[in-house]
Structure formats: C-alpha cells, structure tokens
C-alpha cells in the first residue's frame, strides 16, 4: 500500500464536528488542517470514516451517504459500504 497522502475535506460547521472527531479517533495518523470555512484531513495511504463512530458521537442513526451534504473534496480511491467509507492509494 502506498503511503502517499489521501485527503477528505468538509465544510466547517456543527454538522461536521462529530464527523471530524470520529475520523480523528479512527485514524491516529490523520492530520487535521483548518482553513476559512473548510477543514481538511490528510492521512498517509488510507483513511476510514466509520458509521458507528459517527453514530456514537451523534447519538442517532447515520447513513454514510449523508457525508455528501457537507463534503468539499477528497483524493484517493473510494470503497463505500453501509459501515465504512474508505479512501486509499493502492
């Protein structure tokens, strides 16, 4: 697996706060950068967004496709299921 950087960026708002927290908890190597109105998370090689981790913080059921509402951009190959949204370079 490559260690080139993958990234995902979200709008900076209250909806995305628990998402960013979940990503940080699940990806110890992730680096979070704050820009005006935008938060960008870089990770070496692979980054996972887990539904359960978001639900724990949100206190309700969450459909990972809701990510799209506040998504700004991303980089990497995507694999999406009900439980995980994964970005990686092969």
């Amino acid at each position: 697996m490559s260690s080139d950087t993958v990234f995902i960026a979200f709008q900076a708002n209250d909806d995305t706060r628990p998402i960013i927290e979940a990503i940080e908890a699940d990806n110890p190597e992730a680096r979070v950068a704050h820009f005006p109105a935008m938060i960008k998370v870089d990770a070496p090689g692979r980054l996972v967004v887990r539904r359960e981790s978001i639900e724990e913080r949100l206190g309700r059921a969450y459909d990972l496709r809701e990510l799209q509402i506040n998504l700004v951009s991303l980089s990497g190959n995507i694999d999406e299921s009900e439980d995980e949204f994964v970005l990686c370079w092969n």
Binding site: Q11, Q68, N70, V72, S73, L74
Partner: peptide
C-alpha cells in the same frame, strides 16, 4: 461553492 463542490467529489471519483 461548497454546495457545488459536494457534488464535485462524486464527479471527481
């Protein structure tokens, strides 16, 4: 811009 960009992520992919 961000509303459009959220679609762009799908388009890029």
């Amino acid at each position: 811009g961000f509303s459009a960009q959220s679609d762009e992520s799908r388009h890029m992919t």
